[in-house]
Design a protein around this nucleic acid. Structure first.
Lengths: 158, 158
DNA sequence: TATTGTTATACTCTATAACTATA
DNA sequence: TATAGTTATAGAGTATAACAATA
């Protein structure tokens, strides 16, 4: 069925001018795009029992070496209280360790374990074909270009 | 401070190959990009007292004419129960009406009111400069290209 | 029997505040 | 006084299930 009646033509003036997409279009598209990508990546993570926020922390640790929980929380836009539980989960699975920081006993230095390292690599390799399938209907080079533009979009200060 | 120690070099093999970005990079970037866009658009909506999901429904109604609540829920990826409250809010504000559908008394036809129409236009116009500022640091044409690629990314079936 | 809309409920995620131990 | 980590709690958002009316 369709409940659609005739479109109110006076409304069109704000949306139907060519090249004048809704200022909300970008945000709504980004939400759908994220939902689609996240659903695929969650599948890649399922065998490891990890969730996206856990793996995001592991990626940050690979990129930056060991980090404090505060640094991880800031980098991943979460609050420090949420990060405690993420690290708890990863530590319970033996993927990271909390180590003392010489010179400041308030802080933990979070480091990947050997097991965390191999799990990271396994997930990483298993996710590659999933990513490929995710962008397989785009034209050649568009996926890389998308990554490039999104990187600069998310860093307006650079 | 920085808790960083030396990076474990054996880890790099999965991430440091040029052109071999993490298969998770796209998903994580999309989340950040969405958060940034959503924060800006929420500002645009503040004067109207609406939230993104309300305005998303209004946009759908402008694009498709009147829709049933089921159609709106499907189109916006929400469940029908959540949509009930979105329509409740919009109806309380006098922006939409629930109208009977001739031939099927189970359904409501959701239609924008005159007030909803003018509010839509106001928000739309107020959001334009916010969108411009959001993409102002991108190169000319990149924002349109981004919209184009995201549209196709979110519609793998087309 | 299936579907629309509704209501109530449960669950997840996030955000906030308070507490400790250190600085 | 300020900060890192922890804990407990409250709130928002979402998902699920049951229900009534209708098909």
């Amino acid at each position: 069925m369709t409940a659609s009646g005739p479109t109110v033509t006076s409304l069109q003036r704000a949306t139907d001018r060519p090249g004048d997409a809704s200022p909300f279009a970008l945000g709504l598209l980004l939400r759908r795009a994220h939902d689609r990508a996240a659903a695929a990546l969650v599948e890649a993570l399922r065998p490891s029992g990890l969730e996206l926020r856990h793996f995001a922390a592991m990626i940050a640790l690979v990129e930056h070496g060991s980090m404090s929980q505060r640094e991880l929380a800031d980098a991943l836009l979460g609050d420090k209280a949420s990060m405690v539980r993420v690290i708890d989960d990863l530590e319970d699975k033996g993927l990271v360790r909390r180590e003392p920081v010489p010179g400041d006993r308030r802080m933990n230095s979070i480091v990947l374990t050997e097991r965390g390292l191999s799990v990271f690599d396994e997930v990483h390799l298993a996710a590659a074909p999933i990513h490929e399938q995710l962008v397989s209907h785009l034209r050649p080079g568009e996926a890389d270009h998308l990554l490039d533009v999104l990187t600069r979009f998310t860093h307006p200060d650079l």
